[in-house]
Design a protein around this nucleic acid. Structure first.
Lengths: 221, 221
DNA sequence: AGCGCAAATTTTGCATTCAAAAATGTAAAA
DNA sequence: TTTTACATTTTTGAATGCAAAATTTGCGCT
């Protein structure tokens, strides 16, 4: 089995919350489940530790990383910065076709909003943000963005929203699309920052002290 | 030997250019030199690959990552974004003592400039940029910054400068310190972007097609 | 001599093994 | 009954072993 595949599978397990934050990662079980030996598994865990998804404790095994409120705030700050940068760059480089695709994704997302389908709304939302980052045409930026968003994904996309906040988020997305269509880099950057700041407030206010290590958490896959 | 120590040692070897970009990383030799077996070495290489310093080729071993001009441009762009963000945050959070320390570092750097000592100038320069990032009080940001700067370090701090560019860089640093002392986040962010943009132009104009894999490269440690 | 192909060697990736550290369980003493 | 010391088991971290893949070597042929 390819090394990167192992990393991907474990990453998915962690992001799904199948191993909840703070929980011990059972080496033996994972080996059996993935049908690999400990060597490639441990290599993968080291990589994921470098990404910040796994915490290694010397002679005590590895745990799914658990984020404090401070960690979460920090990561949202960085994410804001990265998205703002991506927005600016995207406005310089994005093609009409890409804008069209994002507009379509936007419309679909709004449809899910009207239908009250939060899961699908989140999925569309994420696709739009990722498309903007992709449109920046900077793989290094995209990689960092992926790594940061992976760490806050569960907080970002699991937190329930009040109708007011949801409505505001949709309004902001209208502005995002608009700025993108006008290729207004500064404006887009500004809106994206505000958008993510609101999201962060929402998440932190929801008291996102990550769920403790023992009880398995809801999967939203 | 501790896992992280191995990663650190190999990282240092790569950053020093002892194994130049594009060159094959000799597993066996490194094992003997670090007095470890292949298992921890290979774990370290996987981690460094995730960081972007090493390139893994399936069944063909690993090489020191070689950056194209595009890679370099992309990384500078990201670095700009991160420094700009750090500057803004630093202005909100930095203490007078920290500003004092940076001012002192600045003066020393200017002294090295006057003495024409490029190596020491670069060292002080880097310390200032790192201090600003540290003052942002965001470890996640600092980590990403460290990872990005590690990848462009050699380009950033090895490229020779013209007297004009050097003078401009020092002038920009005066402005950086000034904005920091006034705690002018927007201003600092703006200057940092311009500063790094100039640096990028300089590096790319110097035709930084990273040195080929065979010949060992100058160490600047 | 130059080229092509097959055998030998090296190198890679993973499984297994081994020693050390931590966790667990047990029993004796307070 | 609770606590502490000690032995046992489990788990971790690293070295070694082994099969597959790639590279190099050597030989025959043109």
């Amino acid at each position: 089995m390819l090394h990167e595949e192992v990393v991907g599978r474990i990453r998915a397990i962690l992001l799904d919350g199948e191993i909840p934050p703070g929980a011990r990662i059972p080496e033996r079980e994972l080996c059996e489940r993935l049908e690999i030996s400990r060597t490639p598994l441990r290599e993968a865990l080291k990589v994921l530790a470098a990404e910040g998804l796994v915490q290694l404790l010397p002679h005590r095994g590895s745990r799914a990383a658990k984020l404090t409120d401070k960690d979460m705030r920090d990561l949202f700050e960085v994410c804001q910065g990265l998205e703002a940068l991506a927005g600016e760059l995207a406005c310089e480089r994005i093609s009409d076709a890409e804008i069209g695709a994002i507009a379509a994704a936007h419309d679909e997302m709004v449809r899910h909003y009207r239908e009250g389908d939060l899961i699908q709304y989140y999925r569309g939302n994420r696709a739009i943000h990722e498309a903007i980052v992709a449109a920046a045409g900077n793989p290094a930026l995209a990689g960092l963005y992926a790594s940061v968003t992976a760490r806050i994904r569960r907080a970002r996309y699991v937190t329930p929203m009040t109708p007011q906040r949801w409505a505001l988020a949709v309004k902001e997305h209208e502005a995002i699309l608009n700025a993108l269509q006008r290729r207004d880099g500064a404006g887009l950057s500004h809106i994206l920052r505000a958008h993510l700041r609101h999201k962060r407030e929402e998440v932190l206010q929801a008291g996102f002290a990550e769920t403790e290590g023992s009880e398995p958490t809801l999967r939203i896959a």
